[in-house]
């Protein structure tokens, strides 16, 4: 027990120890910001991987570590699409995942936003044109926010997510 307490005291607070992100390449459009107003100050996310190389998953996981601690901004990860406000989709949509993606979209209650995370989700990246890839996420379901990068750094993801949140604060709800 003392060992654990000692360790925690020695480590101190690490949250926020990361280099600041630059402005996102693809700016967040006003419509997306308007849509998220309804979610007030929290955003519950369901992550769907439709064929990524798993680097985007690692960065999403990193968002939840003590350094980034996205929970402090009201960002949660839901275990089911039925509990989610936002779908984060990574990877080009493979032929085998196409139906699963559409199912998840249907099962997410309205209102909802869809965030395409990473270059593959936006334009299929290096997998473009393959027989097993049916196209970017936008071809199958409407996408509201794009976060480019291969993979985008956690700071860049956080920047976009907090931009969706800042708008809410300014509108005063």
């Amino acid at each position: 027990m003392f060992r654990i307490i000692k360790k925690s005291l020695k480590t101190g607070v690490v949250t926020g120890k990361y280099p600041r992100a630059e402005t996102p390449v693809v700016p967040v459009v006003q419509e997306a910001k308007d849509k998220t107003k309804l979610f007030k100050r929290s955003l519950t996310i369901r992550e769907v991987d439709t064929g990524s190389c798993n680097a985007c998953e690692m960065e999403m996981n990193a968002l939840m570590n003590p350094v980034y601690d996205a929970e402090r901004f009201g960002i949660h990860i839901a275990a089911s699409p039925r509990h989610a406000d936002a779908l984060v989709v990574t990877g080009p949509v493979t032929v085998n995942m196409e139906r699963a993606l559409k199912d998840v979209y249907k099962q997410t209650p309205d209102p909802k936003i869809v965030i395409a995370l990473g270059d593959c989700a936006i334009n299929c990246g290096v997998f473009k044109g393959s027989y097993a890839v049916t196209g970017p996420v936008e071809r199958h379901i409407p996408v509201d926010v794009h976060i480019s990068g291969c993979p985008p750094r956690p700071t860049e993801i956080l920047k976009v997510l907090s931009e969706l949140r800042d708008e809410r604060r300014r509108s005063g709800d």
Binding site: D49, T50, G51, S52, C53, N54, A55, C56, E57, M58, G91, P92, T94, V95, N96, M97, G125, V126, F127, G129, S130, Y131, A132, V133, C150, P151
Partner: peptide, 26 residues
């Protein structure tokens, strides 16, 4: 998640396919 990686390799030059190999498993 089958993306057809091995077929995609066949469309590439020997010296230019490293970025694809990096993205087989991130």
């Amino acid at each position: 998640k089958h993306r057809g990686v091995e077929k995609l390799f066949e469309q590439q030059e020997l010296t230019a396919a490293t970025p694809l190999a990096e993205r087989v498993s991130g």
